Amino acid sequence: MSAKTKRSKEKAVIEQMIALYCRKNHKQAMCEDCQRLLEYACQRIDCCPFMETKSFCSNCKVHCYQSEMREKIRKVMRFSGPRMLFHKPWLVVSHIYHSRKERNL
């Protein structure tokens, strides 16, 4: 899979997770804070030098998020991760498969 394809898939997943978090916690499609978090995450994904060799940011040895944004994205992922199984099950299955595959390499 090309880095460009991986970037677009990772952006789609993070957008889904942030949107789910915002809908459930802020009762909006996408509030200003969540939109800024999404833009920041997409910027980090675009600048990632390891995209060819990694599957997801959670599997990366280098964490490029600022500490405040890293805490926000963790909060979103902790909330949205389990709920994604009910909203976008194919994304969860794909994520688990690719994460485990990478760890076993």
Rank of each mutant, 00 (worst) to 15 (best):
L38T: 06
Y40N: 06
Y97C: 02
K72A: 09
R74G: 14
P49H: 15
V13C: 01
A3T: 13
C57D: 07
T53S: 15
A29F: 11
E10I: 05
Q43V: 12
C47S: 14
L37K: 09
K9H: 07
K72P: 03
N59P: 05
C60G: 10
A3Y: 14
K11L: 02
S8N: 10
S8P: 02
N25E: 04
M1E: 15
N104V: 01
M84G: 02
P89M: 12
S67G: 03
S94M: 06
H87Y: 12
D46F: 13
A12W: 01
A19H: 08
F86L: 10
N25L: 02
F50V: 05
C42V: 08
L91S: 07
Q16V: 05
S94Y: 07
C31M: 08
C34D: 10
L37V: 07
E71H: 05
K54W: 11
M51G: 02
L105W: 04
M69I: 00
R36W: 15
S99H: 10
C34A: 10
H95L: 03
A41W: 06
C31E: 07
P89S: 12
S99K: 06
I45Y: 06
C22P: 00
H98K: 04
P82C: 09
C64S: 06
Q43H: 13
V76L: 08
K75I: 08
V93L: 13
K61F: 11
R23C: 06
K11G: 00
